[in-house]
Amino acid sequence: MEAIATREACGLTLAKLGRVNKNIIVLDADLSESTKSIIFAREFPERFFNYGVAEQNMTASAVGIASCGKVVFINTFAIFATGRTWDQIRNGVTAGGFNVKIVGSHGGLSVGPDGLSHQCIEDVSLMRAIPEMVVIVPSDRIETEKVIEKAAEYYGPVYIRTSRAKSPNVNNEDYKFEIGKGNILQDGSDVTIIACGVMVEPALNAAKALIEKKIHARVINMACIKPIDKDMIIRAAKETGAIVTVEDHTVIGGLGSAVAEVLGEEYPVPLKRIGVLDRFGESGEPNELFKKNGMTAENIAEEAKKIILRKNR
């Protein structure tokens, strides 16, 4: 199957789940064409509700619908799904302990030409700070399908970030996703690269390039950022001695921070966080933006080489 965007994989999976689970209700805020929730809407118009450009009301309404025993999936762009509605998610969904799943599509710089207003680089930080919230950033079609299925199965609030750009498959079809578990895509002992979402592919490409330099990098796909797989991180620190994190997100509060928290408390080793530094995005093609922000496969390989030199220093 050809590469599709994780947002599309989400829409397809919601429709698939809708066929077997009548309790799945899908909401959108006038972006169903873009978030791909329209795939569900076309098949189950009676279980799809458009809330117009009113994300706060949509999110709190989801609480009401969930209180009647439904599994509610909210869809809109990540910036609106998490920024505009943070209070509704915090006080309504999460503090209330409701079975609401928030899908923020169009996460990160990979949104591209729409520019900084639509490039949400803070969603993971915002959601990670909320008690009891599960935060997942799937990397490809295969993983998105399993993540959405798992989210529907799990009782409680889950934030899932999808992306606009097409993502080549990086996971095996038989891959099993578990909340709280990372997945080692490539083993290695010199350095570990931990990535999520659209950055898993460049992380793998970086590892390939490093092999030519006789450097064996372990690559972890850390789709589940909260709860995070502490054991896998500690093991990587012990066995490889240096870690590079890569995310299409600000380095403040996201995957890099989550890894840093574990390392700082459990097993400190040199760490480099690759992602958006303390600044906003801008219009441009994703590859141009990644290049400017030092987030390409070349940048990752370069940082991996540098961090190896910091080991045992």
Binding site: N57, S61, G64, I65, S67, G92
Partner: peptide, 11 residues
């Protein structure tokens, strides 16, 4: 938020 929640229940 409460009025939105009530709307959701009513819906």
């Amino acid at each position: 938020q409460g009025i939105s929640i009530a709307c959701g229940i009513a819906l």
